[in-house]
């Protein structure tokens, strides 16, 4: 049963090559609550929620804890909605990629149209609830981030250019702005810098991952950088973007928008990031730049980049409380 339904869900880039009604009714009954939760990409949501929470904590002013909790919930639900819509649109490439073939849509446990409806309903609800609980500015930025992720990254850039993750990375950089706006009703330099840091952090983080997952993208025809430009070029891009990222992370401290805890954290974690990126660049490789160490340095850098962002954003929050 699963095999039949799996073949029925492979459309082309969200274009409905098949009707969702082609999915046997029985298959729809096979979804679990966990499948619907999986549509929301909960692991991605965690980091998004964290940076949004830091934007909220670092903002001057006071927001009632109930409303603050609601704001964070809205950011989480909106991020999840983006994940669901992304899974609906990318169901054809998810079906051919090993990493994603067992997701609820390609596995045939949830019909594409139901996933789309679920995602759109959550997206609309999150924006309306944000407006109700906080203000129009936060709701507007939240709506913009959803639109950017769905239309600009997923539908426009992802399948067209190896720079997809550079521009598309902006979608994941909005949460600090949203958290800040939820408290203040506007934005200022610090949340803009937080946005810039996440924006610049995304390419080396994602390209490190793509160095060892590129076979999947190649099979699916997605022009990720290692597929389009090769591993050697990707290593240089990782190193170059890291060199651009680290000074940027020091700007909030240099402008006295954050305190010494942040400054020291950004300095130490930044230096460590550069060393990791250098090791990716100097990894033992063949003439095409393909790793002879099973991309061990890239795997380390990918994991470290998660700690890097978490630590420096936690430091933003600490400085906001200490200062």
């Amino acid at each position: 049963m699963m095999d039949n339904t799996a073949s029925a869900v492979t459309g082309q880039g969200g274009g409905d090559a098949m009707s969702p009604l082609a999915l046997p009714v029985a298959a729809l009954s096979m979804s679990t609550a966990g499948d619907w939760l999986a549509l929301l990409k909960p692991r991605v949501v965690v980091l998004v929620v964290f940076t949004g929470l830091v934007g909220l904590l670092a903002a001057p002013g006071h927001l009632n804890p109930v409303l603050a909790l609601t704001s964070v919930l809205c950011i989480a639900v909106a991020a999840g909605a983006c994940g669901a819509i992304n899974m609906w649109y990318d169901r054809d490439i998810d079906a051919v990629m090993k990493r994603t073939a067992r997701r609820p849509i390609p596995a045939g446990r949830i019909a594409p149209a139901e996933a789309l409806g679920f995602g759109v309903a959550l997206a609309v609800a999150s924006v309306l609830l944000m407006w109700l609980a906080t203000n129009a500015a936060a709701a507007f930025i939240l709506a913009m981030s959803i639109g950017f992720y769905v239309f600009v990254y997923t539908m426009w850039l992802k399948r067209r250019t190896p720079q997809n993750i550079v521009i598309g990375g902006a979608a994941g950089a909005f949460p600090p702005l949203i958290g800040w706006a939820a408290v203040t009703g506007g934005i200022s330099w610090l949340p803009v810098l937080m946005f810039a840091i996440v924006f610049m952090w995304t390419p080396p983080h994602f390209w490190a991952l793509s160095l060892w997952t590129h076979a999947d993208y190649e099979r699916a025809g997605v022009p990720m950088l290692p597929v389009a430009a090769g591993a050697r070029s990707t290593r240089w891009h990782v190193f170059g973007y890291t060199l651009a990222l680290v000074p940027l992370t020091l700007v909030p401290w240099a402008l006295h928008l954050s305190g010494p805890v942040y400054g020291l954290s950004a300095l130490v974690m930044g230096a460590w990031f550069i060393v990791g990126a250098w090791r990716v660049l100097r990894d033992k490789q063949d003439s095409a730049g393909v790793s002879l160490t099973k991309d061990a340095p890239a795997k380390k850098l990918f994991r470290f980049s998660l700690y890097h962002l978490a630590v420096i954003f936690a430091a933003f929050a600490v400085d906001a409380f200490v200062g």
Partner: peptide
């Protein structure tokens, strides 16, 4: 398999969970 008792029970269990 379709219509079997095991499948009906599984479907009911998953529906209850949802």
């Amino acid at each position: 398999m379709p219509g079997s008792r095991e499948e009906a029970e599984l479907v009911a269990k998953r529906r209850r969970g949802r």
